[in-house]
Amino acid sequence: MSVLTLDMAKEMIEQAEHEALQVGVPMVISVVDEGGNFVACHRMDDALLVSVDIAQNKAWTSVALKMPTANLAEAGAPGAELYGINTTNSGRIVLFGGGIPLRAEGRIVGAVGVSGGSVQQDIQVAEAAVKAFERMVAKV
């Protein structure tokens, strides 16, 4: 059985949506498993349509590269070591914050991606989902 279940993804999304409501910005929250496969996605009322793809790609990027997407901003900047990485993988690589890997049992088991606000707001909402995941894993 996978460490990351649909029920867990739903709880993560609920906690992330609560945080987005506190921030006052409608967002899209996406959860993928360790293979980058879609688990769940939620678009709040009035969230930008473009945010659906961005949130899913942030989650995918985070699990594919085993790091938060925020870590790629500097490395992917012009002249930096990973400049141009965002053009690989059919353009799925996202270079700004809002994607965070989910860790359990000493390994990455999935990721969350959030889009709709500023980069800092997206990170804040994604962190709320990660905290919910960590609470659930700690109970097991």
Rank of each mutant, 00 (worst) to 15 (best):
F133D: 01
M27A: 03
F96V: 08
K10N: 10
G113H: 07
V130G: 06
N89Q: 15
G117I: 02
E105C: 15
G99I: 02
A80S: 07
E14A: 12
A64G: 12
L49Q: 12
P101C: 12
D53E: 15
L48D: 11
R103H: 14
G99C: 06
D46S: 12
M1I: 09
V130S: 09
M44H: 03
F96C: 12
D33A: 03
D7F: 13
F133L: 08
V112C: 06
I54K: 00
A40E: 05
A20W: 00
E34K: 08
S30K: 05
V140S: 13
W60K: 04
L21D: 14
L49P: 13
N86M: 13
T87S: 14
P26A: 05
Y83P: 03
D45R: 04
V114C: 11
M44C: 07
E34A: 15
A129F: 05
L4S: 04
N89K: 12
T61F: 07
Q56G: 01
K58C: 06
L72F: 08
M136Y: 12
L65K: 04
E19M: 14
L48I: 13
L49T: 06
A75I: 11
A16W: 05
T5A: 03
L95R: 06
I54P: 00
K10M: 11
Q56Y: 09
A111R: 04
T5I: 04
V32I: 15
R43S: 00
V114W: 01
G116A: 13
M67W: 15
S62I: 02
A104T: 07
V3L: 15
R107M: 14
